[in-house]
Amino acid sequence: MKETRLMLGMPITVNIVDSQATQENIDEVFAYFKYIDNKFSVFKKDSEINQINRGEIMENEYSDDMEEIFLLAEKTKKESHGYFDIHHKGKLNPSGVVKGWAIHQAAKILEKDGFSNFYVDAGGDIQVKGNNHLGKPWTLGIRNPFNRNENIKIVKLINKGIATSGTYIRGQHIYNPFKPQDPIMEIVSLTVIGPNVFEADRFATPAFAMGKEGILFIESIQGLEGYMIDSNGVATFTKGWNQYVYKD
């Protein structure tokens, strides 16, 4: 049972292979994303995060989820040497940590409902559980940053999370008119595989911001593997990356 909806500014897909899946189970997951959007979206006037930014909610009144997100953001900031930071111009925007966390929580909902073969994909960041409909590991493509309709790597995953940080706009021959000679080593895409999508996502974001050093940062963290593509179409990957690669 599979459904895609456009929410939080991105396509979100829930695919449950287990035969007992019902529409109710799918709806429950989307309702959770709706809850996340209402709480954390900086685009919704009355979201909790905006109320906090307007000083309408005091620190001791934060919801449990908000407190958890702030703790996780602080932890990620430390672990990424300051590259991950939810403070922007005096306001808080935890979006960078909310996405992976929300997918991870959504997957937990499905586990709690008794499912063991599914994936949750929000804007290309994915948590997979168990196997696909063929009883085989989930097969995931990594999109070519220079051509949206092509995959440049296929990985096989069971019970893992994967997140890609990057931009396809730069990849599609968009140049900076003021700096046409811009560095050839510019990074266009960085994919991270981790024990779950939350871990993959929270490290992919700051690693991408580090530029070509990012892949070394991923290499330095146990349990994470990464595949980084520069603007010349050259990929650099961590030592354990190939264990996930599907060879055709």
Partner: peptide, 9 residues
């Protein structure tokens, strides 16, 4: 593939 990872946003 079953699905694709990428920065679509």
């Amino acid at each position: 593939v079953d699905t694709v990872s990428g920065a679509t946003d």
